[in-house]
Design a protein around this nucleic acid. Structure first.
Length: 826
RNA sequence: GGGCUCGUGGUCUAGCGGUUAUGACGUCGCCCUUACAAGGCGAAUAUCACCAGUUCAAAUCUGGUCGGGCCCA
């Protein structure tokens, strides 16, 4: 073999790391390659990447997903688009507050607010750095120079401007409504943040007496809420209690500032077979209570305050924490002989997703985004969005079916975007900041340019500077936004809304929203809601919804199952000769998984080839290596083989006197080029990856290369032209999946990098009926080759031995010369 | 408890009314063959989760069951 231009014997993780380091070290080169330049004149394609939340570890499934978003970004660049692939980090929210509380063993509300915010910021910064490193290690081509942080003023000011805009339009309202409230964390939460846990609770059968003295047993798990009881109900068909309906019944505990009796009424929601079949309805024990109160037109009692303590109506129990009050009520009732029995029972308790604290429903004045009136219009716009895969549109539509109340967006937390509003002394007017400014009303006065609005009508009454005198002592809002209020304008932010309106004109609706299916109901839904409320447009052209990364047996990875696999360990597997080893708990026993070399290129290739978008995928490092590292080696070897023959200077002009074998392989490749182009255009990574893999590891090396080998060794310039033209273009179309691999080979061989190509390669031959005819011979050719190899093996001949009596099928007699040379046919 | 979704050899995957059910990896056997044992040839491995139904014909359509997953209550 002549000396190949590619000196490395094989592809390795160390080589990969070296190329990556070069790639990321030169900022200006990097920026030229991947920076977003909206003035380039190319079609703008903005990707609304999911800003990851830095929490210490980045889930390997999410990293795999993110690498596929990178494949999309790179493939769109290759198609000639001006791609903005932003790098954002989501840093708002309760998670980091919890982390700080845990680290310092102090509750948030015991801190000075400003001091606590600084602690959060410092803590999250450490995690953010680790995340950036993983992002580079997996080869992301984000515009890191334009990194955005959702807790930075430029991001938060967009959220605030949108709030003011929607408030002026009447799409954001404030209202006193029953709210799901986490008394431990001291904040309102949304439906979406509630989950159910099974816990043991005491089901208490309490004796109540009607005014006429009849005993009625009522079962309850919440005896402390008897003070908030508004009505006692039975099922309308329940004959046992028919005679009691309409009577008054006495509350079995002492109360204050309210009547001590309630009426017995009927309601169809009562389950007669549960307990005694009599239900006390409190404001508000659960969602059903809320519904009953509304339906029966009762006015609610506030039994629990913002600190999770009983209010004054609880009489002797006022001031006690809910749990303490419950224990005391039970003890007192027992002492009075008012308890028939107590049963320990497993019950589903609604808890907050983050804090796992039992939630309460209490009346609070909160901010809401109106959403029920706009569902129909949203559906129309959603029809215009292309979903990948199409079936995942259903996740969104199903969620929308369930929407019945407005979206509560205010929270009583700190490390979030502040609600940008101040109230006049008489509460009739509000002050809002001008768009583009970030404000913190809990500590600042309104900035210059703020406007004064009527709180009810939202009429603009004048400027804050002019009206200051009339407003009295103003009060800044202390509440903050739900984090989804921030996240749901990520597409507007990255598309340039407010900050670069000229770019925004070209970039909205945003080109692509890639995300996991688990946050369809939140991130995707709320984003689309805002697009419709603000612009009456669909938010995106494409939505790409991927499945989740599972353990090797298809189960969710979790700390408690002990089946997690760390992303960095897979990406670093093989570096410096170190192998990877993972101890993973399987369904029956622990399993030791081992791999020698993986790295980012192999990892990306695996995800691209192995998992259809939208399906959950199993992550097993052993398989990733076994199935895909060989593919890299094969293509590497093809390129290395080609590199021993000089590349012609002109790879554009097709030589006129090509042999039929050359025209055949160019025809095959023309088919690959167009199939892959179609796939990249329709954001179909899987099809593109498979087509490239099949051609690059099978058709090209095993069949054409063997036919052309003799000619290549003999210095045939046509064959050299064909192999180099194909290798160059193959590396180009493969570069979105394995960018560093393709960069290295193309740069070494041709002095230009595959990752810099911004024009999709065109076929060197006309893809016409002649090409189609040649392609139709492919399977006959491949079968003939396999058959000949088999015949030699069966005859005990070496492959280079001469063989006679092999008959070339009549369809491919035009390949006779090439086949004779390849197989040494006589 | 409800909704949605997925269920094809050990693993991944094609197919989407008529195929001897595709391909890849892995496994096993044989072969060092001048880019490549990271290769070549061959073999075994699938009642297409299960049960009913529609049809001349079902992996494919319908209903149900079970299992994984997501979401909700």
């Amino acid at each position: 073999m002549a000396k190949p231009k590619i000196s490395e014997k094989r592809w390795s993780v160390d080589l990969e790391k070296r190329i990556q380091e070069e790639h990321y070290s030169d900022d200006s080169l990097y920026n030229n390659r991947y920076g977003f330049n909206p003035g380039s004149g190319k079609e703008v394609f903005v990707i609304d990447t999911p800003p990851p939340y830095p929490s210490g570890t980045w889930h390997i499934g999410a990293v795999a997903q993110y690498s596929m978003i990178d494949v999309i970004a790179r493939s769109q660049r290759l198609l000639g688009k001006e791609v903005f692939f932003p790098w954002g980090v989501d840093r708002n929210g309760i998670n980091i507050e919890f982390t700080v509380e845990k680290n310092t063993k102090r509750k948030m509300k015991s801190y000075d607010r400003a001091e606590f915010l600084q602690l959060c910021k410092d803590t999250i910064e450490e995690y953010t750095v680790a995340m950036r490193n993983t992002a580079r290690r997996v080869g992301l081509s984000c515009d890191f120079a334009k990194e955005y942080l959702t807790d930075a003023p430029n991001y938060r000011s967009v959220t605030q401007a949108i709030f003011v805009d929607l408030f002026r339009r009447g799409e954001i309202v404030e209202d006193l409504r029953p709210n799901i409230y986490d008394p431990v964390e001291g904040t309102t939460i949304a439906d979406a943040e509630v989950e159910r846990l099974n816990r043991m609770t005491k089901l208490v059968d309490v004796k109540w007496y009607t005014e006429s003295g009849a005993e009625v047993i009522i079962s309850t798990t919440r005896p402390e809420l008897i003070c908030a009881c508004g009505v006692v109900v039975v099922h309308p068909e329940d004959d046992r209690y028919r005679h009691l309906v309409g009577q008054k019944i006495v509350l079995p505990v002492e109360v204050e500032n309210r009547e001590a009796t309630v009426e017995i009424r009927t309601h169809p929601s009562v389950k007669s077979e549960f307990g005694s079949g009599v239900l006390m309805v409190c404001s508000f024990g659960d969602q059903n209570d809320v519904a009953v109160f509304r339906e029966l037109g009762l006015s609610p009692f506030q039994a629990i305050d913002l600190d999770g303590c009983m209010t004054s109506i609880a009489g002797p129990y006022s001031g006690l924490k809910v749990n303490d009050a419950r224990a005391k009520v039970i003890a007192d009732l027992e002492a009075m002989g008012a308890i028939l029995q107590i049963v320990e029972k497993e019950q589903e308790v609604p808890v907050s997703e983050r804090g796992k604290n039992p939630v309460e429903i209490i009346l609070l004045k909160e901010w809401y985004v109106r959403q029920t009136h706009i569902q129909g219009r949203m559906r129309e716009h959603i029809d215009d969005i292309e979903f990948h895969p199409p079936r995942n549109r259903q996740f969104l539509l199903d969620w929308m079916e369930n929407i019945s109340i407005d979206w509560p967006i205010s929270r009583r937390r700190w490390y979030h975007t502040e609600i940008p509003i101040w109230y006049s002394e008489d509460n009739s007017r509000v002050i809002v900041p001008p768009p583009g400014t970030y404000v913190q009303p809990w500590k600042d006065v309104p900035p210059l340019g703020s406007r004064v609005l009527d709180r009810e009508t939202r009429d603009d009454l004048g400027s804050w500077e002019d009206m200051q005198e009339d407003l009295g002592v103003i009060i800044g809002e202390e509440k903050v936004f739900d984090t989804w209020m921030d996240s749901s304008n990520s597409n507007l932010f990255v598309s340039g809304y407010i900050n670069q309106m000229d770019t925004f004109e070209k970039a909205f609706p945003t080109g692509l929203r890639p995300q996991g299916k688990e946050i369809v109901r939140t991130w995707l839904y709320y984003t689309l809601l805002k697009s419709v409320l603000l612009f009456d447009k669909p938010g995106f052209k494409h939505v790409w919804i991927d499945g989740l990364g599972m353990d090797p047996w298809g189960r969710k990875m979790s700390k408690s199952l002990g089946n997690g696999i760390d992303a960095d360990s897979v990406l670093e597997c093989g570096a410096g000769g170190r192998t990877g080893s993972w101890r993973v708990k399987g369904p029956e026993k622990s399993v030791q998984l081992k791999a020698n070399k993986i790295g980012s290129e192999c990892f990306r290739l695996w995800k691209a080839c192995d998992a259809q978008v939208g399906d959950d995928f199993h992550i097993n490092p052993e398989e990733i290596e076994a199935k895909y590292f060989g593919v890299l080696t094969k293509i590497f070897n093809v390129a290395r083989f080609a590199s021993q023959f000089d590349a012609p200077n002109d790879l554009e002009t097709l030589p006129s006197d090509l042999e039929v074998a050359d025209r055949w392989v160019l025809s095959e490749f023309a088919g690959v080029l167009s199939a892959v182009k179609n796939a990249w255009e329709s954001i179909d990574i899987f099809t593109a990856a498979r087509a490239i893999k099949n051609f690059g590891t099978d058709v090209l090396p095993s069949h054409w290369l063997e036919m052309a080998k003799t000619r290549l060794y003999d210095g045939d310039l046509n064959a050299a032209w064909v192999i180099h033209r194909i290798v160059r273009d193959l590396l180009t179309i493969f570069s979105p999946i394995c960018p560093f691999f393709c960069h290295h080979l193309s740069d070494t061989l041709y002095g230009t990098s595959a990752v810099d190509v911004d024009e999709y390669p065109i076929s060197s031959i006309d893809d016409d009926s002649e090409a189609e005819r040649l392609r139709s011979l492919t399977s006959t050719l491949c079968e003939f080759n396999s058959g000949t190899w088999r015949a030699k093996k069966e005859a005990g001949l070496s492959l280079k031995a001469e063989i006679s009596g092999v008959k070339i099928p009549s369809e491919i007699t035009e390949f006779e010369g090439a086949l004779k040379a390849m197989h040494h046919l006589q």
